[in-house]
Each structure stands twice: as C-alpha cells, then as structure tokens.
C-alpha cells in the first residue's frame, strides 16, 4: 500500500504570509498557505464564490481574502466568513521535519468531488 502522505516540498519554500500552488493531474489545483503565525493550511485553490484563485489572495490571521471579489475564506475550514456563505474543500496536511505533506486520500478526492459539495 502506498503511503498516506505526499511530500510536496519544504516549509521554507513558502514565505510566511504567502501561498503556493500544487497542480493535481486530473484533479483540482491545491493552494498551500503559510500564515504569519507560522501555520500551514491547504485548500482547493478555488473560491466558493466565483472560483477565484485563493492562493493569490492576501493572507491575514487564519484567513485569506479572495483576489477577485474579496470574499474572506477561513484557512482552517474553507468556509466563507462574515456575511458570505459557501465552502471550499480543505485538504488535510501535516508538517514534519521541515517538510509539507498532503493527505493522499484528500488529494485523490479532488479528482471526483464537486468542490461545492465537499463540505
């Protein structure tokens, strides 16, 4: 059986306060966020509103503001914050010895799930 986690790179590859992208063959592109407080999160790189690339938004606290229409999305849950309603799937990940890992099952799920239904 293959391992449960996919190594996608070093923590040092993403500056705190920024995000990076990981395309998935046959699936949804994933955005990996590094908050100013040092946390890492991964979401499908699509705003629940109009599918804007969340990886290009401004990261603040534990949320990101979508670059298209400024919806604020929780990095922990993928849910739209404030007045807006909607949710983008969050991808389980872990940080170990300076490396970033995405859950293989969660990444694989992006190939089949319609993002809006996933949460």
């Amino acid at each position: 059986m293959a391992q449960d986690w996919i190594d996608i790179g070093a923590t040092s590859a993403i500056e705190a306060g920024m995000a990076a992208t990981v395309p998935v063959e046959g699936g949804e592109e994933i955005a990996v966020f590094h908050t100013m407080q040092g946390q890492f999160y991964a979401l499908v790189n699509k705003c629940p509103h109009k599918a804007g690339p969340l990886s290009q938004g401004i990261v603040h606290g534990d949320s990101v503001s979508c670059p298209l229409h400024n919806w604020r999305i929780s990095l922990a849950t993928g849910e739209a914050l404030g007045e807006d309603k909607g949710c983008t799937p969050s991808i389980a990940m872990k940080v170990e010895e300076g490396r970033l890992f995405l859950s293989r099952a969660a990444v694989a799920a992006t190939r089949t799930q319609v993002p809006q239904k996933a949460c």
Partner: peptide, 18 residues
C-alpha cells in the same frame, strides 16, 4: 521566482491506490 512557479505537482501515478 516563487511567485510565478508551482510549489510542486502531483501526478496521477501518485494517487492511484488512494
């Protein structure tokens, strides 16, 4: 350069038996 490139990519082969 980091702003214009992907962190990495995941190929279909890496997901086959997930």
């Amino acid at each position: 350069r980091d702003l214009h490139s992907h962190l990495g990519a995941i190929g279909a082969d890496q997901l086959e038996d997930a």
